[in-house]
């Protein structure tokens, strides 16, 4: 088990370094305006001096080395336009908690809604809950999330008579962002859980359990549900990415002072160092999510400890 964890950890670290390098190199292709507060008014000499001080005139390999060196020191650079000169680390530290809290709440909500929905759908195949759930899944999967996020904001705020924008201190304003953000994952969990439960229900061990005299209800609870849950875990990373993607919309729609809203904001202002930092942070979340999924899988599935896992899922 320990070896399994260790191998995963090393793999994730290597992946992370490569991913960050790719992102870094890509972002160097940006126009250099994004490193200045007021590029147009500056003289070439001043510009050059600043580029020099940022190390942007160095060869890319040197830049990359410097970047990782400062990253290890915990230095993410300073904002160029969003909040001039402020260290990005502290901006993010200030914004991240709301995002993390929103994301966790929404994932918790998605689980409490999606898992019972998926189980109900599998149990009533072809009947009401299945049809209702299918309709829900089709709409959520097919319609771009931006559309229903906006519609929810538009009509639900009217209907529930709650403010359209987020206020940290007002719990009522948390409802819609969390709910909207959970929809995609709810549909996702329900869809996969239903599929895996139906798959499991057709397996021989379920037939054997039936032949043993176990009731359908107990089979569903003790055998099918638990076994269907194992492959579900591999969707954990994807659902983290879903949440991250959703937060970009939701936070800017509801003016949540978090990371997602910040990203949209700094893209609008073309603040290169900020964009770089946030994009990389999201990559880290992605890699960590995958790692988490792998490790959880190892905990839940007794077969993992023995089977040598193939490289990719």
């Amino acid at each position: 088990m320990l070896r399994y964890i260790l191998r995963r950890l090393v793999g994730a670290t290597i992946t992370l370094v490569i991913v960050l390098s790719i992102v870094f190199v890509l972002l160097r292709q940006m126009p250099i305006e994004g490193y200045f507060e007021n590029y147009d008014k500056l003289s070439p000499a001043v510009i050059n001096a600043r580029l020099e001080s940022l190390g942007l005139n160095d060869p890319i390999a040197v830049q990359l080395k410097d970047f990782f060196a400062s990253l290890l020191r915990g230095d993410l650079g300073t904002s160029a336009r969003y909040r001039v000169g402020a260290p990005i680390g502290s901006i993010i530290a200030q914004k991240a908690p709301v995002s993390i809290l929103l994301g966790l709440l929404s994932m918790a909500l998605a689980m409490t809604l999606g898992i019972p929905l998926g189980a109900a759908m599998a149990r009533s195949k072809g009947k009401f809950w299945d049809k209702f759930g299918t309709l829900f899944i089709v709409i959520i999967n097919a319609v771009p999330s931006a559309v229903y996020y906006i519609l929810i904001q538009m009509y639900a705020t009217d209907l529930l008579k709650i403010p359209m924008l987020f206020e940290r201190g007002n719990p009522v304003t948390w409802i819609l962002p969390v709910f909207s953000m959970s929809l995609g994952n709810t549909a996702y969990y329900a869809m996969w859980l239903r599929r895996y439960m139906l798959d499991e229900m057709n397996k021989d061990y379920v037939k054997l359990a039936r032949a043993k005299g176990v009731s359908t209800r107990k089979i569903t609870m003790r055998h099918v549900f638990r076994n269907a849950f194992v492959p579900m875990i591999q969707y954990l990373p994807t659902s983290i990415l879903y949440t991250v993607g959703g937060s970009i919309y939701i936070e800017s729609l509801y003016s949540v002072p978090g990371m997602g809203g910040l990203l949209v904001d700094v893209i609008g202002r073309q603040d290169n160092p900020m964009v770089q930092a946030i994009v990389m942070l999201y990559c880290v979340i992605g890699v960590v999510g995958l790692l988490l999924g792998d490790l959880l899988m190892g905990v839940v599935d007794p077969r993992i400890k023995f089977a040598k896992k193939e490289g990719a899922r």
Binding site: V19, V23, L26, L241, I248, Y282, G286, G311, A312
Partner: peptide, 26 residues
């Protein structure tokens, strides 16, 4: 297979929304 799977694993780690943003931004 081995090489491509490794490459895939790395590329797959970059959230696609981020790639979208990155490319559109650049």
């Amino acid at each position: 297979d081995r090489v491509m799977t490794e490459i895939y694993n790395i590329l797959d780690n970059i959230p696609s929304t981020i790639v979208l943003i990155l490319i559109s931004y650049i």
